[in-house]
Amino acid sequence: MEKNISFKLKIWRQAGPKEEGRFELYELNDIPTDTSFLEALDILNEQLVEKGEEPIMFDHDCREGICGMCSLYINGHPHGPATGATTCQLYVRRFHDGETITVEPWRSAAFPVIKDLMVNRNAFDQIQQAGGYVSFNTGGAQDANALPISKVAADEAMDSATCIGCGACVAACKNGSAMLFVSAKVSQFALLPQGKPEAKRRVKAMLAKMDELGFGNCTNTGACAAECPKNIKLSNIARLNREYICAKCAD
């Protein structure tokens, strides 16, 4: 049932990458519970603009949970309290009337704040560019039955490929580790015959880039998989470790 609620927003404001940040308290009144959380922020920004204040900067794009642009660390959870959903799929009905909602940017040394709630996630692009692709000519599409792939492997690869690269795993990790992201990207190729020829080179290059960019070491707390909006599984990290150890031993 739709109703209207009022709540406070405690939001991180930071004028620029080098500026000192601080929390500001805002009030939103009479917001319908069927409003999405990002729409609530839009409403707040409109009010701020009307008042002649600087609107709050936050990342967003598709608003249907597939692009990986939206971020926000809401009440202690990346992408907010909902599980298996991105911030743009979060609705105001998740919160109570009179509640104070704390909204912070992803915090990790490898994801520096650009402004307010927006962080620079270019590090993920660099990891992808280091090896997250198949580089040979694929030519025309093969007949589907020409390349036998087990159902188990196909399903696993598809599940791994659902990673949208939003960075929630890094935000959730107490070590700022990007292992879940890298492991999903490595797994989606490692599981399929098309990815096998370059598997060793790929895993070494992507992991080396991850380490170089200052992400932390995985300590298997599992916070990443618990907070992942796409439910990427922890077993991907075991696969990444396995692939990397085998590649290094083969050298």
């Binding site: 660390y73 009440n75 202690g76 704390t102 915090r107 040394a109 932390g216 070491n217 916070a223 618990a226």
Partner: peptide, 21 residues
């Protein structure tokens, strides 16, 4: 190394997911 990777700014509110021991 992990502390350095986490950065100097800590979260104001953080919650431990149920599956994390």
């Amino acid at each position: 190394q992990n502390r350095k990777a986490r950065g100097s700014d800590s979260y104001d509110v953080s919650a431990r997911p149920k599956t994390v021991s």
